[in-house]
């Protein structure tokens, strides 16, 4: 893998898919011109974030004609983008799609919907149920939408699946301006979390933030790329839109994993055994196995 990516820190207009799509296509064209292999956009990049009843208005099937321009553009460059996915039986997901070679090759449905404080995602969205890597021609990519990253099993499963890059598209509100810290508290928290994830998983981590305001809630940008040893190699600011370019290579990945071979030394069966205490189904499975005549 020797990948040139562009992370597009955009400011989607709330509920205006046409306008947002046009901006996606502009950014994509620039990235193609610059010779990038992939371009990635934030969470719900086609729609904006605080959608409420607009979730119903804006949901699109994976094969919707509205997404055709992105599928078409993906013949020139791989594209990760966020949209409201509507299923035929009437569920809506906060999804992040991977388009490549003219088709939507994979979709991650946000598992950990945020429904506390200012958030109310679980009221409007159905939750995804799995963490599966995208098997792109460019590499093995683990998508985690925003809050997904806060739950340890999410990145752990991608880690077990040997992903090369974790993509973390997000729409995180900027908050925490107290003088006890420097800069936005929300940015510091994300930075800690992303760095720790890179260290734990020994993978490249690409965080794609968004900017702009929706009814007084500002989004904190801070798109960044962190290498597999936890160094932030590129970053954008909190308030302005922009494009972050970075090169992600296998060699750095390999060196980091040789230096600290966490994946080699991982013992997932210990987790499986421990989980049996917390998940009744697993406990029953364990007992079944024990009853089998040896």
């Amino acid at each position: 893998m020797d990948l040139r990516i562009v992370a597009a820190q955009t400011n989607p207009r709330l509920g205006d898919v046409q306008k947002n799509l046009a901006e996606h296509l502009e950014r994509i064209e620039e990235a193609v011109r610059d010779g990038a292999h992939a371009i990635v956009f934030p969470e719900l990049s086609l729609t904006g974030y605080f959608l409420k009843d607009q979730v119903f208005d804006l949901g699109l099937a994976r094969d919707a004609k509205e997404l055709e321009p992105l599928r078409e553009a993906s013949r020139s460059i791989s594209i990760g983008f966020g949209f409201v996915e509507r299923t035929h039986e009437g569920r809506f997901f906060n999804s992040w799609a991977w388009a490549e070679d003219g088709e939507i090759q994979g979709v991650h449905r946000k598992v950990h919907l945020v429904s506390y404080g200012m958030f109310d995602e679980a009221r409007d969205f159905a939750a995804g149920e799995e963490f599966r890597p995208f098997a792109s021609k460019l590499g093995r990519f683990g998508p985690l939408v925003c809050e997904d990253l806060w739950h340890m099993p999410s990145s752990y499963l991608h880690f077990l699946n040997d992903v090369d890059v974790l993509f973390v598209p997000s729409a995180s509100p900027a908050r925490g301006v107290e003088q006890t810290g420097e800069g936005l508290a929300s940015k510091r928290t994300w930075s800690t979390l992303l760095t720790a994830t890179a260290l734990f998983t020994r993978t490249w981590v690409v965080y794609i933030g968004r900017v702009g305001w929706e009814d007084g809630i500002g989004f904190g940008g801070s798109t960044c790329v962190i290498d597999p040893t936890g160094n932030t190699v590129a970053t954008l600011g909190e308030l302005e839109p922009g494009c972050l370019e970075a090169r992600l290579d296998s060699e750095t990945l390999l060196r980091a994993r040789v230096q600290t071979p966490l994946r080699r030394d991982e013992k997932p069966w210990i987790l499986a055994t421990g989980l049996a205490e917390h998940v009744p189904l697993l406990a029953r499975m364990r007992d079944e196995v024990r009853r089998e005549p040896q």
């Binding site: 301006v177 800069g183 305001w213 500002g218």
Partner: peptide, 14 residues
């Protein structure tokens, strides 16, 4: 106490 410079930047953007 807040960081007045940061708050100013945020509010101007807002």
């Amino acid at each position: 106490d807040v960081q007045p410079e940061l708050v100013t930047d945020l509010l101007v953007s807002f």
